[in-house]
């Protein structure tokens, strides 16, 4: 039997599951509900200052990247659950998208 390379994706999926369960809910509440309804000051200057702070930047990076690994991992396996037997190309596209989002978030925060 061939060794699976799943441990790599499973590790990232696990980290993503934790971030999505612990951090994402309050972020959705702030950016998606409270700020648009005017309850929270969400001005450019304030958000820019938060993102420029090292800790703030790390929080944003974690909130963008890890849930990508969670969700794309689950959706890839869901294809199989729905009877779609996707090949390695689709697998590469799903995890490639997660990697791309991870790198893009880091790039946007750093440069």
């Amino acid at each position: 039997m061939k060794r699976s390379n799943e441990p790599v994706f499973w590790g990232l999926f696990g980290a993503g599951g934790m971030v999505a369960a612990l951090l994402t809910p309050v972020l959705i509440l702030i950016t998606g509900i409270l700020a648009p309804m005017g309850a929270v000051d969400f001005s450019f200057a304030r958000v820019d200052a938060f993102a420029s702070n090292i800790l703030g930047g790390l929080i944003i990076w974690a909130a963008v990247s890890f849930p990508l690994w969670l969700s794309l991992h689950r959706l890839y396996h869901c294809l199989h659950d729905f009877g779609v037997h996707a090949g390695n190309g689709v697998k590469a596209a799903f995890y490639g998208a997660a990697a791309l989002g991870t790198v893009a978030a880091a790039y946007l925060l750093l440069f």
């Binding site: 999505a20 963008v64 990508l68 969700s71």
Partner: peptide, 9 residues
């Protein structure tokens, strides 16, 4: 969860 990450990005 995916959609929200993309919105944040």
């Amino acid at each position: 969860i995916l959609a929200y990450s993309v919105i944040l990005l």
